[in-house]
């Protein structure tokens, strides 16, 4: 009798499980068809980093204050300010091979210049191609306008003529060599 109830109970539970599985036959697939259907991304999503320009005037927003360079845990950012004109950027290197997309640089940026875009397709053939310079990082005016609206960031004010003092002192001593490439070289060897 014990064996009989056990058998009936076992059969019932196996068929109950199978019935649950068979219920899924008719429903739509839960996986997404990725290359055809782009996934829905949110304003706070952290992917490839980029530099914005002023959406109204097209002026570059970076003031070379080097806050992002100082806070980056992976030291993947190198900011080179223009020694001739203080508060303007000359070059900007960002190694996406080292970056871990923590988003700390975007938080400390005083002008909302460096932002996380929603672009996550950035595969390259070599590691050197992942080091982005200022031309590849800077967005166009239309893209900047899109991100300022999408992330609900305050629109940049016109640049004041006088800069605060600590910003100027930092921009006076540009590093001769990009730190990102130096760090990358150490890791490879």
């Amino acid at each position: 009798m014990n064996l009989l109830t056990k058998t009936i109970d076992g059969c019932y539970n196996i068929f109950r499980g199978l019935f649950t599985v068979f219920k899924h036959i008719a429903r739509n697939p839960i996986t997404s068809a990725y290359p055809d259907v782009v996934p829905e991304l949110y304003p706070q999503t952290r992917h490839r980093l980029a530099l914005t320009v002023n959406p109204d005037t097209g002026e570059h927003l970076c003031i070379a204050c080097k806050q992002c360079e100082r806070i980056c845990p992976d030291t993947c950012i190198t900011v080179i300010g223009d020694p001739e004109k203080k508060g303007t950027i000359k070059d900007f290197y960002l190694d996406h091979g080292l970056c871990m997309f923590c988003g700390l640089c975007t938080e400390v940026c005083p002008t909302n210049c460096i932002i996380n875009t929603v672009d996550f397709e950035m595969s390259e053939y070599t590691r050197e191609d992942l080091i982005y310079d200022i031309d590849r990082l800077t967005l166009t005016q239309e893209q900047s306008r899109f991100y300022f609206d999408f992330k609900e960031m305050p629109k940049p004010r016109p640049k004041p003529e006088k800069k605060p003092a600590p910003v100027q002192t930092q921009t006076e001593a540009p590093k001769p060599q990009p730190a990102a490439s130096a760090r990358g070289g150490e890791k490879k060897s």
Partner: peptide, 9 residues
């Protein structure tokens, strides 16, 4: 739970 919990296997 319907699939696993009381499944004899």
């Amino acid at each position: 739970e319907a699939i696993a919990t009381k499944n004899p296997i």
